[in-house]
Amino acid sequence: MAPIELLIELTLMPLIAFIVGMMMVLMMRRIAAKIQRRIGPPFFQPLYDIVKLHGKRTQVSHGLIHDIGIVMAMGGYIAAETLLPVPGMNGIAEKGGLITLLYLMMIPSLGLALGVGQCANPNGSIGIARALTAMLAYDIPLVIVIFGVAYAAGTTNLVEIIATQQAGGFATWGVVEMPLLAIAGLIAMHASLGKQPFEIYIAPAEIATGPMVEMSGKYLGGLFVMQCFQLYTTSVLYVSLFLGGGTTWFDFLIKSFLVLAIPVSIAYLFPRYRTEDLLRLMWKWPVMLGLIGLAFVM
């Protein structure tokens, strides 16, 4: 591939991810509104929020690490987008592979931990401690699921995994071949989004949105951008692993929005677990399902 072409792809992929991610945030808020019998926000609401936050006059910085932490939180996901193949664009997905992607998806939490650490707000510290505990909880089923898929496909190359699924049609999709791993993956994905039953580290009524408590202006705006990327990355990863990626943009977007709609619809019906309950639940059910699924794959 020509370097210019690669450069264009590497620029376009995060941009598309950002736009689709904003629409995913909108969908999430609209679903919440429909469940609560409200009208919900207008179409451009996520954009209004982000532009407004970046346009605030006071920008309270708590130091250099605070700035770098936010950049890490966004940058980790932006780097992850270039490893996620979308229809027509592969970026550096063939060279990166699933394991690199898994590492890159951990960077935002660590960056947030650094950034929030310098704020020295007790609520933020509790929040970030809970976020890292939650990461410990959902990463184990996620790693089992990703290992299972990679083992079944015989490769960690995401492009090849998608190509095999598309060549064989619906019967070779991951969700048909490995249903137990797909269920475990869905639960792990739900926890990694940090949505309601697993919302231990945001918890507005308890620890005042945890990591976000000292964030104002562009820092909070950065976290809003990060959320767009987070929703996009998780749902597209799931679509690539289990639903055969996308042959065209149309079915790719439909699949990824539908996948995201499942955890989001469940989320607004439930209150919140405690941290130890989350750990117990994540290490019991998805891990058990994942291990049984792994036994079937092997």
């Binding site: 509104a33 409200r38 009208i39 919900g40 929020d49 949105t209 408590v213």
Partner: peptide
């Protein structure tokens, strides 16, 4: 806030920390 008047359709959101609020 809730379904009667729904302030989110006008872009009004409750926040929990003064740093985030306008």
């Amino acid at each position: 806030m809730t379904s009667r008047f729904d302030m989110e359709r006008l872009g009004i959101q409750p926040m929990v920390s003064p740093r985030q609020a306008d």
